[in-house]
Amino acid sequence: MDILSVNNICFKTDNKYILEDISFSIKKGSITALCGNNGAGKTTLIKVLKGLLKVSLGEIYINGLNVTKKSGERLKKIGLVFQDPDLQIVGETVEKDIEFGLRNLNLTSVEIERKVNKVINELKLIDLRNRDPLTLSGGEKRKLILADILVMDPDIIILDEIFANLDYPNVKVVLKLIQELKDLNQTVIIVSHNVEKFLFLTDNLILLKNGKVVYNGKSSLSIEVLKENEICSQNSFFENMLMP
């Protein structure tokens, strides 16, 4: 069954449409790339999905349930990792930062500890557990904000420009993390204007242009469209990365 389906969504500010008639659906356990050039409307779309912005028109379903009017429900079910880790970390230690969201759910301390330990093990954060987040490296910070979201048990995880400002070793760390999420059967949407680094990991691709969907299908068949729309250069040679 589709874990997320979006029907004819529009988002308007003042009198300009930023998103127009967007429809797509996403299967449980799949990894989707949401791409488009600067200003295409990617961030706006995910904020609308998450419930941080109001939908002007259209419907959103999660697990078959209509949640268009229930933005609180969407806040819980969709985990969103923002681009800048420094604007998301609040705790004084890595462990306390992971606890933050759970405490807002008013869980018991036993339950909180169990969930935190689980995520710390899954993401192999044990050595960093008691560190001050401000002293972490860029890649470690990404890992932490991913843990912050993962611990809340969302149905869908959205990563906005997660590769921005990362060097090659850290890109590899994040790619490995996404692969691990896939192995855990998590549903992930990776948002970026630069898909070459991670396209091989994804099952499907949605391409936005001027607030509209121009491609929605298998990643392996998307290369020509990506080249046509100048998401990647004409002589990109990452086709071979798509081979299994």
Partner: peptide, 8 residues
């Protein structure tokens, strides 16, 4: 935004 998304 990020606080809200962590249900604060």
């Amino acid at each position: 935004d990020s606080l809200q998304s962590r249900l604060f």
